[in-house]
């Protein structure tokens, strides 16, 4: 059987949207291999979320237990591996989020599987699937073949549409969870970065600031709020402690592909471009006319961001 299992991600009583993108990747794979689509949902008190997943047409396996309250890789991996075996999954995938990247390699090791990270699309013929993925900070695209019987992957959510409700509704199956004995990982705390703004990876517009802000993100945030946009940042701004880690866009931060990306005071190092060059329209505002960011920007404005951004913010407000 070449069934496909997608691992769902949830938090704060809600499904993470990235999961719906991973499900549509899973659905594409299942169509290729002629297998069925399954979803694994783990956590505590997550049963109410199963129906939304079943509405995509997937068979949903719910493992609901106090021991699974936090997504600890060594607690979750054996449960997911068991679900994968039970449903005959030849492909096991998830969204390439922090959780997906932490968890799936551990699941892969448990299943004796090879794995492809941050998959952008599938190639090959029919059931002989290859995985397209970025290497060297997105400067190279690789077509990768996985030789193990079970193949594990994470997908870049921006490359797949969000799954819509399917023609049929899948069944929901409860999974009996064996509490892993001798677990040596303990969840101590989670400090949420709260924001009224849209989530960075899902926003239609992103306004990002870099070293050029000199630590003053007010003009960046004001423009973002006028546009209903998410705020991003370059590594330099995050390293300096000016903004939370969670805002970093780039090879080692988040990958975004909004309709509009405004890079303010960001020079455009390769590592940053890797995280945003899939954006539809890129605007760069920078004092330095030779900044590399201008080479990929659709519209470049050589100007001081402290003057240009407030002026643009006024324009946006006036147009409403």
């Amino acid at each position: 059987m070449s069934n496909v299992l997608i691992v769902a991600e949830q938090g704060g009583g809600q499904l993470r949207k990235a999961t719906l993108h991973a499900i549509s990747a899973g659905r594409a794979l299942a169509a290729r291999t002629g297998g069925a689509l399954h979803v694994a949902l783990l956590g505590q008190g997550v049963r109410p979320l199963a129906d939304a997943l079943a509405a995509t047409g997937a068979e949903v396996h719910v493992a609901d237990a106090p021991a699974l309250e936090h997504p600890l890789a060594d607690a979750w991996a054996p449960v997911i591996a068991e679900i994968a075996k039970a449903c005959g999954a030849a492909y096991v995938g998830a969204a390439a989020t922090a959780q997906g990247k932490d968890l799936l390699p551990r699941v892969a090791a448990r299943l004796g599987a090879g794995m492809a990270t941050e998959v952008l699309g599938f190639g090959g013929d029919g059931a002989a699937v290859t995985f397209r993925r970025p290497m060297w900070a997105g400067n190279v695209l690789a077509e990768v073949e996985i030789a193990t019987p079970v193949k594990v992957f994470t997908v870049r959510a921006t490359e797949f549409p969000a799954a819509e409700p399917g023609a049929g509704k899948g069944a929901v199956h409860e999974v009996a969870v064996q509490v892993p004995a001798g677990l040596r990982t303990r969840h101590v705390a989670f400090r949420e970065v709260k924001s009224e703004r849209p989530e960075l990876t899902e926003a239609r517009v992103v306004v990002s600031g870099g070293r050029g802000t000199k630590g003053d993100f007010k003009p960046v945030e004001a423009l973002a709020d006028a546009l209903g946009a998410a705020v991003g940042a370059s590594r330099a701004a995050v390293d300096a402690g000016w903004v939370p880690n969670d805002w970093q866009v780039g090879q080692t931060g988040k990958v975004v592909a909004p309709d509009l990306y405004v890079a303010a005071g960001i020079s455009g190092a390769i590592q940053h471009l890797a995280g945003m060059k899939g954006s539809k329209v890129i605007v760069a505002v920078n004092k330095d006319p030779d900044a590399p960011v201008f080479q990929i920007a659709d519209y470049g404005l050589v100007a001081d961001l402290f003057q240009a951004l407030p002026a643009l913010t006024e324009k946006v407000k006036a147009s409403k």
Partner: peptide, 18 residues
């Protein structure tokens, strides 16, 4: 078990206007 079959360069993004 994970074999890279082929590498390619991603489509270049054209710089726009100032």
């Amino acid at each position: 078990q994970v074999v890279v079959k082929r590498l390619s360069e991603p489509p270049a993004r054209k710089g726009g206007v100032k």
